[in-house]
């Protein structure tokens, strides 16, 4: 590949990566909050279940 072709390749990669990451960050931020709640609720339930078994 010529240097010009490499430069074009890096430009496309940078644009795609930053755009892709922007979308991923948005989705993960919104859905991650829900996951935090679910994780804490599930851990509390597990804790209660193990206490009741004891």
């Amino acid at each position: 590949m010529t240097p010009a072709a490499w430069t074009t390749f890096w430009a496309i990669l940078i644009t795609a990566a930053i755009t892709g990451f922007g979308i991923l960050a948005l989705v993960v931020t919104l859905r991650g909050l829900q996951d935090v709640r679910t994780m804490l609720r599930r851990m509390q339930e597990q804790d209660l279940a193990s206490r009741s078994r004891e």
Partner: peptide, 13 residues
């Protein structure tokens, strides 16, 4: 391991 309760989005974060 957080009670093995990690879901996808939180895992990625």
């Amino acid at each position: 391991v957080a009670g093995r309760s990690l879901r996808s989005s939180l895992g990625i974060a």
